[in-house]
Amino acid sequence: MSLTSTSAVDPAVRFEPALMRRKLSGTVFYGLCVMAVGILLLALVMLLADVLVRGLPWLDWDFMTGGPSRRPANAGILPALVGSLMVGIIVGVVTFPVGIAAAIYLNEYASDSWVNRVLQTNISNLAGVPSIIYGILGLAVFVRLMELGSTILSAGLTLTLLILPVVIIASIEALRAVPNAQREGAYALGATRWQMVRGSVLPAASPGIMTGIILAMARAIGEAAPLILIGAFAFVTFLPNPFTGSYTVLPIQIYDWARRPQDDFAGIAAAAIIVILVLMLVLNALALILRARLSRHIQW
């Protein structure tokens, strides 16, 4: 195309083909974006459908109240379910004070010294350590050194160490969201630092903190890798004692069944998966409800 001919053409027409092409590539890109999200949601739906189709026929009262068995038709998950709930409770009970205390220290007390910077960096690095490594730590410290044995207590404490960094990071976020005017108001009334934290900042941050703790408990209940090292691989037909004796938990029970080649074991594994997913759903709903209730009175 020569110079004279281009200048003669109306600019709107001259840009038309290029603009069409640019808009077309935009549309193609948008299509790709929709496809990406579509693939993810499709995978989620397929997963749920596959688990439901396989598992629902096996899910009955006997399954919920029975113990493990070498024959799939007789197998149940009660010991594993109780084990998981006990582990979850231990995690919640220990994480609640320690996680909140650590977050309060890091956000409300820590001055900008090297010690505090080390603490902070350390916690974010811990959040990136693979979960199975925590199992090795738990095996060395809780099972052997403190001689707690391969028990639910050891499992709970190990998972507590695993989720503490996540809880602390979430709690710090919640504390950060509290406006400084709240703190200044408390000081103006003559509060000491702890009175300020307890009376003013902590109540305001509690919805975020509680949500973080419950979601972390859900994560702990779904976690299997560290517990392989804490001896959760037991054939337990009785209800476990949290402080002595062997135990198993839902994810490990699922793992045990899923590894067997027979189709029936895949069926009961799927049924156990339905149970654990429902458990997670309940915990997530609980977190939402609690958040809504706690934040009802908070207004800045």
Binding site: L47, D50, V51, G222, Y255, I273
Partner: peptide
Amino acid sequence: LLETIAGIPTIVLGFFAVNF
């Protein structure tokens, strides 16, 4: 919904890989 996927216990995802 997407974050739900990250919250599914990984053992469940493993089951999905082997069985589906």
